[in-house]
Amino acid sequence: MRTYTSLYTIMTRVRRRIRGEIAMTVSASRSTIELFINGRGVTVPDGVTVAAAMLISGDACRVSVSGQKRGPVCGMGICMECCATVDGVQHVRTCLLEARPGMEIVTE
C-alpha cells in the first residue's frame, strides 16, 4: 500500500513538473510563494489553492449582500461562497484555482 502511495506521489510530481508547475528543485514541496490579498503580502505554501491561502491569511473571500464575511463551504466549485477577484477577474471560484506567486486577490 505504502509503495503504491509513494509511487503515485512521485508520478503526480513528475506530471506537474512536466507542466512547469513546480521548479526543478528537490525541496519544491516545502517552498513558499508570496501573493497579495487585499493589498497585503501573504506567504503561503507552494501548491495551495487561492481559497486555502485566504483561509490561512484569515481573509474572507466575499462579503454577502447583508454584510457577512464568507469563505469556502463546498470546496468543489458549487456553492460560489469562495468567489473573489483574482488579478482583476471578478467572481473567480478560488477553491478551484491554484495560488501563484504575485497573484493579487481582492475580497468581493
Binding site: 505554501p45 495551495v48 489553492t49 481559497a51 486555502a52 483561509l55 463546498c74 470546496g75 456553492c79
Partner: peptide, 9 residues
C-alpha cells in the same frame, strides 16, 4: 468541503 480544502493546502 473541509477535506477538499485541507487537501488543497
Amino acid at each position: 468541503g473541509l477535506q477538499a480544502i485541507v487537501k488543497a493546502g
